[in-house]
Design a protein around this nucleic acid. Sequence first.
DNA 1: CTTATATGTTCTACATTCTAGTACATGGAA
DNA 2: TTCCATGTACTAGAATGTAGAACATATAAG
Lengths: 111, 111
Amino acid sequence: MTEQKDYLGHFEEIVLLAVLRLGENAYGAKVRQTVAEATERDVSIGAVYATLDRLERKGYIKSWQGEATPERGGRAKRYFRVEGAGVRALNDTAAARNRLADGVEFGLGTA
Amino acid sequence: MTEQKDYLGHFEEIVLLAVLRLGENAYGAKVRQTVAEATERDVSIGAVYATLDRLERKGYIKSWQGEATPERGGRAKRYFRVEGAGVRALNDTAAARNRLADGVEFGLGTA
DNA sequence: CTTATATGTTCTACATTCTAGTACATGGAA
DNA sequence: TTCCATGTACTAGAATGTAGAACATATAAG
């Protein structure tokens, strides 16, 4: 038994990074906006929540209900925070990738 | 229409990097071995070929038949090479991720 | 020759992830 | 009390990720 590592999917990694970056201000709608800006894509809110839920189920993040009365109406926020396991997964994922990318000249294909 | 970028999946990125790194020596079995070492996981050969096929269908890599007679028997190899579009996809994928990771202290969670 | 063996690829099927879209919830403003 | 803005939850289908067994082919052994 060689302790198979667990890597993050592409979007999982993106979302996890967004939550980490947002810190105290990480809630669904904001995460969506952050991801959309970084990826320059239209990211649907459903995609974000589905991924957040999956990450939470895996123990990479944790969520809780926020205040129900912000400045101007609206539903209560659900905040997220990255757990230790999440940081570890992020590191492992990057490490494996870096092992392959390291030293390869990128930018002009052999093609 | 805002020209939606096309990002690579986790495993697609890994496999594409392996092909790039292997250069002249990139063929299925070798790619598998390289990926297995970098990820420290048991990667099935089927997983690798399925991904290589998808990458080729998308125009990120190209393949051709190699010599049929290596040192000691065996079937002819199928070689792979990364195309310009592949390098571009690799760069776009990394760029979006970096935009999120940049400046975030990683290593010790907020948790 | 015929079989064994090593190297490599193909094919198939199923699990997980990705993604969009729509419905639902709730507080303040008109 | 209806409307609007902000947010979250749910559902379903497409795309990716993954394993495993079958197939192909060249050399070595006898």
